[in-house]
Design a protein around this nucleic acid. Sequence first.
DNA 1: ATCCTAAACTAATAAGCGTTAGTTTTGTAA
DNA 2: TTACAAAACTAACGCTTATTAGTTTAGGAT
Lengths: 197, 197
Amino acid sequence: MARIISTKNTSKKDVIIKKAAFLFTKKGFASTSMRELADHIGVEASSLYNHIGSKNELLQTICFKVANDFTTQLNQIADTDLSFTQKWEQIIRFHISMMLNHYEEVFVANHEWKQLEDPFLSNFLQQRKLYESRLVEWINAGIQKKEFRNIDPHVAVLTILSAVRGLEFWHRHKKNINIKKLESAMLDHLLFGLIKK
Amino acid sequence: MARIISTKNTSKKDVIIKKAAFLFTKKGFASTSMRELADHIGVEASSLYNHIGSKNELLQTICFKVANDFTTQLNQIADTDLSFTQKWEQIIRFHISMMLNHYEEVFVANHEWKQLEDPFLSNFLQQRKLYESRLVEWINAGIQKKEFRNIDPHVAVLTILSAVRGLEFWHRHKKNINIKKLESAMLDHLLFGLIKK
DNA sequence: ATCCTAAACTAATAAGCGTTAGTTTTGTAA
DNA sequence: TTACAAAACTAACGCTTATTAGTTTAGGAT
């Protein structure tokens, strides 16, 4: 009889969520069936329901885990008395490391949140909106302290977050890249631009 | 008897594709049913098949239309003798305008291409890879001409393309933004960075 | 008025979906 | 060895899916 393999640190539920994140990334939430998920784990579809509540619950778990990770880190950096340049450097580095080290979960949260159903959908969007508005304030503050150029703060946040999100295209050739170098290169472009002065 | 409304410039097929792009953007390809699409157009699902081949064909049409638009524009700019700074400014402005004026089609091409089936999937990826490698060459050439700072060219292309893609988040409040201003602000950040020198 | 054709309709197909109920297997502890 | 509980299994439910075949409608041309 087939069994889900779990260890002391990872429950059977964790195994299912991890594999779900992998498949949702690869094929999309709606196109991934419970039978397919079960196949990849090595059991029958109905067996999954001994450990999880529903397919939707899997998506919810992944999306909110990621959202909370980002919020927690933002709070932690906000509590320091670093300069706004340093705060931004820290949060950008965190986004990059999340992108590289928790690729699948972040990808699902970024791409499949639309398939959430209310009230989860509303909650998720509200949390993200709040997160972004706090980052806009970090830009505004940096401009006032003359650390940053006088740019549009909303556009700046959008540009930075989107650029980092683009690392999803990079993840495939993870083996071929030096992560530290990549991190520095992207930070360099976002902070200092393309053009030689 | 219900009828699909078409004009001299837009065939019934065009009407279906347009509405499909709208729904695929809003709900995702896999989560959009042909019945739903037909509902929005005002006919029965089976009637659609008088005008289109299949659901997959709709996705293919949208994805390759977008891909070809980008490739065509790249060729046109490449044929000029503008500086590489100017070439980059032109292609960025084109990406931004595609993002704002053909939002739904571009969104589908960016997000739902995974649902393509071979050989379309392979073709699509190959075309995109080629596009990106040509842009990398534009960065390399700009560095050699001392127009650009000595940055990692792959990272630069990724950063710029991803930042522009992020405009999809902006599209919702289209009414509230000045497009020209937005375009300039993003270009400014990508070219000159965040930090005051 | 009659005919033709475009384009709608209805009805049905086979396959796949998430999920549940009820049963059996399996490993562990008494 | 027996008893218990965790976690697998089989089978089935009721729905929805894309798509096809065959039929009917309706507008324009003869």
